[in-house]
Computed example of a mutant assay.
Amino acid sequence: MYYFAYGSNMCTARLARRVPSVAPVGPAWLSGHRLHWHLVGNDGSGKCNVVETGDPGDRVYGVLFELDPARLDRLHAAEGPAYDFLELTTGHATGQATAAIYRGRADWLDDALTPFDWYRDFVVTGAAEHGLPPHWIDGLAKVPTVPDPNAERAAENRVILDEIPANVTSAIR
């Protein structure tokens, strides 16, 4: 199955910790949506979410991955109850693909939230790693952040940014 990542899961090392096998397909986009950082994370900070606008000019860039649909337990657990798991049509270099996506539930949204710096770094790293458009990466890098008050959690997450996962494979085409 295809999975469209638009937040921290764009960082291959982060996603690779959550699924047994990761196969990047490449850059993709979701039309008629905007990216927000307002989903209430388990740690109380803002996490990425896509909001449907219906305007075809609105676009969220992300990464298309191939994942084994029978082995998503840890990914579902990591994303938690704040998200619905659904399928939407995404665009990519060779056309369109139906992809699974996590979209935030309305009762888990708070526009007053700010992401932790390490979380934003996952998003920016993943976008750069997969060659998303420079204007998109620049916009992600400018998102205001706050330091995580839990230094241990911040350090544990920053370690992932330097990992080279062993469970990354080539996408099946």
Results as ranks from 00 to 15, higher is better:
G95K: 07
Y119I: 07
D107G: 04
A93L: 12
A97R: 13
D117E: 14
T114L: 15
D121G: 01
D117A: 15
D111N: 14
Q96F: 10
T114M: 14
A99M: 10
A93C: 12
L109W: 03
D107H: 01
I101E: 05
D110N: 14
H92E: 08
G95I: 03
A93Y: 04
D107M: 06
A97N: 05
A99Q: 08
L109R: 07
P115M: 12
F116L: 07
A99T: 09
T114H: 13
D111P: 14
Y119W: 09
R120Q: 01
G104Q: 08
R105E: 02
A106T: 10
F122K: 03
L113C: 14
W108Q: 12
R105G: 04
P115Q: 11
R105H: 09
P115G: 11
A99H: 07
D110L: 08
A100K: 07
F122W: 05
W118M: 03
W118Q: 00
Y119G: 05
G91V: 12
D111C: 11
A97W: 06
D111W: 12
D111V: 15
R105D: 05
T98F: 11
A112W: 13
D107Y: 02
T98M: 13
D110I: 14
A97D: 04
R103C: 00
A97E: 03
R120I: 04
G91F: 09
R103V: 04
P115H: 13
A112R: 15
D117C: 11
